[in-house]
């Protein structure tokens, strides 16, 4: 008798809790993927496609779904990989060889003597940072360039180079006294 009562009671309890959780699942349904948004914020937004996805957002979405590895973002390098791994609570993975050192920021520069005005680079630029028209000289808006290098392979005359941005007194950074002291020792 008691055993039967026990079975019934626990059956009832399970049912009740099941209903409660079922209700909660409907009530607290999460629309969209807030995690993808969070990851997207961590990505460098170069839109370079080096991860194999068409842009930073698709990669973030794939990461959120657990379909992509954390170590694919080459411009972001190791710091971005670590941040994403921390966010997703997964083991960090070593970056591919070429991406272990974060590259200094570079921008594309069109050699205007060589440019033939083919507009191919304009189509390739993911952030519309190149201006120009057919048979007219093109130029890169330095401020908008993310350094994704997508315009380089499409140029039929190889007139685009990646250049370092020269520091100005405004962008110049005071050296880190700690590393200075360490290097002195």
């Amino acid at each position: 008798m008691s055993a039967l009562a026990g079975i019934l009671i626990f059956l009832g309890l399970s049912l009740a809790f099941g209903l409660l959780l079922g209700y909660a699942a409907v009530r607290f349904k999460v629309e969209g993927d807030p995690v993808a948004e969070l990851i997207d914020k961590k990505l460098p937004q170069t839109q370079c496609g080096q991860c194999g996805y068409p842009g930073c957002k698709p990669y973030a979405e794939a990461l959120a779904k657990g379909e992509a590895e954390v170590n694919l973002c080459i411009p972001g390098g190791e710091p971005t990989m670590l941040e994403i791994a921390e966010l997703l609570q997964v083991e960090p993975k070593p970056m591919q060889a070429e991406a272990t050192e974060p590259k200094p920021p570079m921008v594309a520069l069109i050699n205007e003597d060589l440019c033939i005005g083919c507009v191919l680079c304009i189509k390739a630029c993911p952030v519309d940072a190149i201006v120009g028209a057919t048979k007219m000289m093109h130029t890169v808006i330095k401020k908008e360039c993310t350094g994704c290098e997508l315009c380089i392979p499409v140029c039929p005359v190889d007139c685009i180079d990646m250049v370092f941005e020269q520091p100005t007194p405004q962008t110049w950074k005071w050296p880190d006294p700690k590393s200075a002291a360490e290097s002195a020792q």
């Binding site: 460098p44 937004q45 842009g55 993911p126 993310t146 005071w174 880190d176 006294p177």
Partner: peptide, 23 residues
């Protein structure tokens, strides 16, 4: 040093946001 780092981080964040919007 910390100030210039923070300034750079802020500028970078702004650039990133801009790139995202443009994309």
């Amino acid at each position: 040093h910390a100030k210039s780092e923070v300034r750079e981080i802020r500028a970078q964040a702004q650039l990133t946001e801009q790139a995202k919007q443009r994309h």
